[in-house]
């Protein structure tokens, strides 16, 4: 294998990592703060993709505007999911919470099938081809990576520089103590779910540029996203980014050194070993 092609695979891996990180971040934020795993998270991403698709194809909206609308829409959906499904079961046993969000997953898949049939829908975009020093890079991935990076930076600044962000981090560190100190946990939960929804909407807007959307879109990204969250340490944002890059490099570079199927085997073996050695995730806190 020529070195240039390995370099190309490595760079494409980093770009894939950016997309995976965006997916994992929203999910991990919600888990860290609300302490519930939204199994249906990637289904919200799918709704974001559909929103952009329909606004662009049926209503001829310009893509950036449609993307903003999708972010707004999925933010509202995130809030609704919290208010209607999560809030009533906050103190239920974890297995019930999992079942409830799992039920939401099947509901959203079936509802999307009912509304839009099982067709695969794609935006017809003519994206430029980027060739840098003999390496080909995906423009859609580059764009997604750049926007993901900005979103992560924005999230970081929000969490560290604002009062609400500090409250969110405080709740994720010690929810009982925060309640005892008179903080309004409900508001913190709601804002977190909104941000989680916005991240899902943004991911949807970036994914529709490169993927077809269909009601079972979640099957491609769902398992990988959860694996990354667990590997990085559930609730640990920085860990999620590191785990995304690790997984995407294993898939990309491993894929060209061995085979596409073997790269996934290696990725899952790394996952299993990592969970044995550090059950709290590679960057998780030991309790």
């Amino acid at each position: 294998m020529e070195p240039i092609l390995i370099a190309e695979a490595a760079i494409n891996g980093i770009l894939l990592g950016g997309v995976l990180a965006l997916l994992a971040l929203g999910l991990n934020l919600i888990f860290g703060v609300v302490d519930i795993i939204w199994i249906a998270y990637v289904e919200l991403v799918m709704l974001g993709m559909y929103a952009v698709y329909w606004l662009v194809t049926a209503y001829a909206w310009p893509l950036p505007l449609a993307a903003l609308a999708a972010v707004a829409l999925v933010t509202v959906l995130g809030l609704l999911v919290h208010l209607l499904i999560i809030a009533p079961i906050l103190s239920s046993p974890p297995v019930n919470q999992l079942l409830a969000t799992g039920g939401l997953l099947f509901f959203l898949q079936s509802f999307a099938t009912f509304l839009w049939a099982t067709d695969h829908r794609s935006l017809r975009l003519a994206l430029p081809i980027l060739e840098v020093f003999g390496m080909f890079l995906s423009f859609a991935r580059l764009l997604a990576f750049a926007v993901s990076l900005l979103a992560m930076l924005g999230l970081y600044l929000f969490l560290t520089r604002t009062y609400m962000g500090t409250a969110i981090r405080a709740v994720s560190q010690d929810r009982e103590a925060m309640a005892l100190m008179g903080a309004d946990a409900r508001k913190v939960y709601l804002v977190t779910s909104g941000i989680g929804g916005a991240m899902a909407g943004l991911a949807g807007a970036l994914l529709i540029i490169q993927y077809s959307v269909h009601p079972h879109f979640g099957a491609a990204f769902g398992p990988l996203t959860f694996m990354i969250c667990v590997l990085g340490g559930l609730g640990n944002m920085f860990g999620a980014v590191v785990a995304s890059l690790l997984m995407s490099e294993v898939i990309s570079v491993g894929g060209i050194i061995t085979s596409t199927e073997m790269a996934y085997v290696v990725a899952f073996v790394i996952f299993i070993v990592a969970i044995f050695v550090r059950p709290e995730g590679i960057l998780g806190k030991r309790e």
């Binding site: 190309e8 695979a9 995906s138 993927y211 491609a220 898939i251 990309s252 060209i256 790269a263």
Partner: peptide, 10 residues
């Protein structure tokens, strides 16, 4: 699969 870039490179 969510990605086939490495297969293309290969």
């Amino acid at each position: 699969t969510p990605d086939l870039a490495s297969l293309v490179t290969k």
